[in-house]
Simulated scan of single mutants.
Amino acid sequence: MTDGQREAEGRAGTVRPRSPRRHRVMQQGRIVLGPDTLLPCVVRDLSPAGAKIVLSRPIPLPASFDLVIAAHDLRTVSVRLRWQRGEVAGVRFAPAGDPAP
């Protein structure tokens, strides 16, 4: 069984597939909080489904926002906040055309 196929046992004893494989990165990012408000961050882990981001200080994030990632190219993705602990947060990429909650 490969890493991407590993399964984790849930609380109720159910088996669920592991999230897509994450890649450690260190890319500059910007959280778009409004037309004139960009919050710098660093993208630390990246997978096809989402990312882990690190802020310079703990700032409460909204449930959904756009994230600009500077890698080989500059791309903007819509994300949903999954969790946040202080200055570290996990986000999930929203499917194209998915309306904000």
Rank of each mutant, 00 (worst) to 15 (best):
G10A: 12
G10Q: 13
R11P: 12
R11Q: 08
R11A: 10
R11L: 10
G13P: 05
T14D: 15
T14N: 15
T14I: 02
T14C: 13
V15R: 15
P17T: 10
R18P: 09
R18W: 07
S19V: 03
S19A: 11
S19L: 10
S19F: 03
S19W: 03
S19Y: 04
P20V: 06
R21E: 13
R22Q: 04
R22E: 02
R24S: 09
V25E: 09
V25W: 10
V25R: 11
M26V: 09
M26H: 12
M26P: 11
Q27K: 12
Q27C: 14
Q27A: 13
Q28I: 06
Q28S: 14
L33K: 10
G34V: 05
P35K: 09
P35A: 07
L38V: 05
L38A: 03
L39W: 04
P40E: 09
C41N: 08
C41R: 09
V42F: 11
V42A: 13
R44H: 06
R44P: 01
R44Y: 03
L46M: 12
L46W: 08
S47Y: 01
P48F: 07
A49R: 14
A49H: 13
A49P: 08
G50P: 02
G50R: 00
A51L: 05
A51E: 02
A51V: 07
K52W: 04
K52L: 09
I53D: 00
I53V: 07
I53A: 00
V54M: 11
L55V: 01
L55A: 03
S56M: 10
P58V: 04
P58L: 04
P58W: 05
P58T: 04
I59V: 15
I59G: 01
P60H: 04
A63C: 03
A63I: 02
F65S: 02
D66V: 02
D66C: 10
L67I: 00
L67A: 01
I69H: 12
A70C: 14
A70T: 08
A71T: 12
H72S: 14
H72N: 13
H72R: 15
L74F: 02
R75H: 14
R75M: 15
R75G: 11
T76E: 14
T76V: 15
T76P: 15
V77Y: 03
V77Q: 06
V79Q: 04
V79C: 13
V79W: 08
R80M: 07
L81E: 03
W83G: 01
Q84V: 00
Q84C: 00
G86N: 09
V88A: 10
V88W: 08
A89E: 05
G90S: 05
G90T: 02
V91G: 00
V91W: 01
V91K: 00
R92K: 05
F93D: 07
F93R: 04
P95C: 08
P95R: 14
P95D: 11
P95G: 08
P95L: 13
A96K: 13
A96E: 13
G97P: 09
G97R: 06
